[in-house]
Design a protein around this nucleic acid. Structure first.
Lengths: 234, 234
DNA sequence: TACGGGATGATGGTCAGACCATTAGCACTA
DNA sequence: TAGTGCTAATGGTCTGACCATCATCCCGTA
């Protein structure tokens, strides 16, 4: 009968309104929101309140704020990059152990292999080989980093031509997670073995051999898992 | 010679400092940050700036702010619930089509079945059956919602006893995504067929029959995919 | 003595107005 | 024509004030 009145924070109401506008497409990436002083008048609130709303939107990755003339809040294009970064940020704060994440990785990265093998184009294969070459060059120069391995795995996911999947894998290999779990330590032997396996995987993809691809990826991830398990105290 | 000076936003510096404290464990969930007025003095900035920093931390899900006496900013326990909510929020804004997400779902929800079958306890099975019973009761009363189906799928993922995986599946079934993609419409026939398949899945789990579980889940998701494909214009 | 209710102080939420720093575009000058 | 300084718009920050909320304490009453 008497509906409960819930007085949200004013700034939160503004956030919700703008979020809705973006979701509905009334505001599209690249659009510029009115200036802070303008928004104050339209919403009938003080500038402080508007600014707090903009902070929240910015933290949520929905808008980007530039200063100076012709500055203001611009709706950002939701790139998969930005999203997987946010995802990785969330993951790094989650109450998850290293083995939890590794197991999830195995499910996803092995599960997508049928799609990868089915859909990989010649261009995909070329790209993958290029990444491996680069990795080997870096290895020879003693500059191998886990980033190169990550790039390979992400590119493999890209062979599905499904941005959702690519995003998932990308987030698993995000810089934040890497630095947390394995602290950049890239044992040289690790790199050699790793690139060998990477090359074997590409061969399997090129041959459209799902079983071989799964086998290679399984052992590859298994080995990685063992190594991360050592220093994973959390 | 003259090193470039980069003046970050002051509020951002504060955010980074507090984030660091949380990540380092110097601030643990449940801890209460000093009051706004107190933080002003410690950082030597105005209250507005401190408040903007707190807004960002709140939007990132790191702290929860309560008003009134004994109120303040409390470091939140990073629950999987909160995280999958954030994940779903990100997903709903991503440049992804419905079929992209459905395909990713299939990879994950089918890929985890070996783990589910291996690890499901009697309690898990009991819970699953309870959810099905509830769904059938709701169905009989004409109150079936997709939420009940979602609860089942999440609980299945819970059988892996891996919070990372549970979180992933949870986010796929988040309320935001649901409302976006299938607009709460739950065809009654859908519900009947769905609960039947759910029950078949539980049987397979109880019998530790991975192949059967995969078969059931595959057809189940396939049917769901078809239905969502109809109204998915994006 | 025990209980209920009002007073109290700490805390976050909001406001108004001011000033500073940054930046793109413009007009002016050499 | 090229360079340079001005200008106006915009975000960033500060100050001080007032309001709403809420746990706690204290006092009066039964």
């Amino acid at each position: 009968m008497f509906a409960p009145v819930s007085v949200d924070r004013v700034s939160q109401v503004i956030v919700d309104q703008i979020k809705l506008l973006i979701r509905d497409g009334r505001l599209t990436p690249g659009d510029r929101l009115p200036s802070e002083r303008d928004l104050c008048q339209r919403f009938g609130v003080s500038r402080v309140t508007v600014r707090e709303a903009l902070r929240v939107l910015e933290a949520s990755g929905l808008v980007e704020i530039r200063v100076g003339a012709r500055g203001g809040a611009f709706v950002t294009a939701p790139s998969t990059e930005r999203l997987s970064a946010g995802l990785a940020d969330l993951l790094s704060l989650a109450p998850l152990t290293g083995s939890n994440v590794t197991e999830a990785r195995k499910v996803v990265e092995i599960g997508i292999l049928p799609l990868v093998v089915e859909r990989a184009t010649e261009e995909d294969v070329t790209d993958l080989l290029a990444i491996i070459d680069e990795a080997e060059a870096a290895l020879a120069a003693g500059e191998y980093t886990m980033g190169l391995s990550a790039a390979f795995h992400v590119r493999v996911a890209g062979c599905t031509h499904n941005p959702a999947i690519e995003m998932l894998v990308h987030s698993f290999h995000g810089p934040i997670l890497m630095s947390l779990r394995q602290a950049q330590m890239a044992a040289p032997t690790m790199g050699h073995k790793g690139t060998e396996e990477h090359r074997a995987l590409v061969e399997a993809i090129k041959a459209h051999d799902v079983d071989a691809a799964v086998a290679v990826m399984s052992t590859h991830l298994e080995r990685t898992a063992e190594r991360t398990a050592e220093d994973a105290q959390d």
